[in-house]
Design a protein around this nucleic acid. Sequence first.
DNA 1: GCTTGACTTCGAGTCAACTCGAAGGTGTGC
DNA 2: GCACACCTTCGAGTTGACTCGAAGTCAAGC
Lengths: 144, 144
Amino acid sequence: MTEPDAVPDLPWTVAAFAARTGVPPTTLRYWDDEGLLPAHRLDNGHRRYGPDDLPRLEMVRMCQGLGCTMDEVRLVLDAPDPAARARFAAEKLPEVLGRIELLRVAADVLRHVAVCEHTDATSCGAWMRSVLEPPGERPDLRAG
Amino acid sequence: MTEPDAVPDLPWTVAAFAARTGVPPTTLRYWDDEGLLPAHRLDNGHRRYGPDDLPRLEMVRMCQGLGCTMDEVRLVLDAPDPAARARFAAEKLPEVLGRIELLRVAADVLRHVAVCEHTDATSCGAWMRSVLEPPGERPDLRAG
DNA sequence: GCTTGACTTCGAGTCAACTCGAAGGTGTGC
DNA sequence: GCACACCTTCGAGTTGACTCGAAGTCAAGC
Ligand SMILES: [Zn+2]
Ligand SMILES: [Zn+2]
Ligand SMILES: [Zn+2]
Ligand SMILES: [Zn+2]
């Protein structure tokens, strides 16, 4: 226990929080400056993080994974009224579902490319078809 | 028929191909310069595109949707031997499957946020739980 | 007191993937 | 011939999200 735990609920410095979460210290400072993940401050101005900051950090990571901009992340996490947040989520949902569908097509393509022997990628009808004809039936890509 | 169809199989100028595909002319030139989608050239140096260029364009779009860098797209489309391409696809597949899984979690979260009435987003256990307790390890959500 | 290491701010630099602007070539209509 | 639209290249600017460097502050160990 090298920590003096002067502030019992805020055990982590920037470096410690970075080590724990995998987010670089520079990025944590940036997120604090931008209001994405506000840090607590000691009297001397040093940043401190506590367990209560972990959920928000995970939300930031997840939102990034959705391709949200930082403005959108702030909207989700700091919307003054829940209604704005709910509206945003409702608008975002179909987009996410669409992305899932596209990724499924892409996964099929990758599965075939992994075993395809065509020299020219674009000359292989097996996966060109699935890229060019998204709606409709999906032929089995694992066949040559 | 204003087209003189001097080159019957290459009917489209940059602007025409842009109009047909929705990719801006500037981007088509950029993709040509970078070797992502090489254009054919007339004797006077002008770019021309034909139907044979459509599949490759769709592949470029799809790869972008996978979050591939341009280097990776070139690797998939121009790998000197099919083996390198196949290897890349095999390595990429699990990553894509992981992304699908994460997007499914995100979709669940969005579905709840759309109806949640908590003032403080991070205080709502219902979706915090799904974010913080994913079964197994978490792949990097950021595109790549 | 002095060194060491981690912290602070702020301004500038980096990166990918475009996107724009200037200067000039090309070709069709009148 | 000349206007005009569209093409060319090349270099520079933009955007978002970091990432770094310099200059200074703070606390512990010797
Ligand atoms: Zn906190
Ligand atoms: Zn094939
Ligand atoms: Zn072609
Ligand atoms: Zn809720």
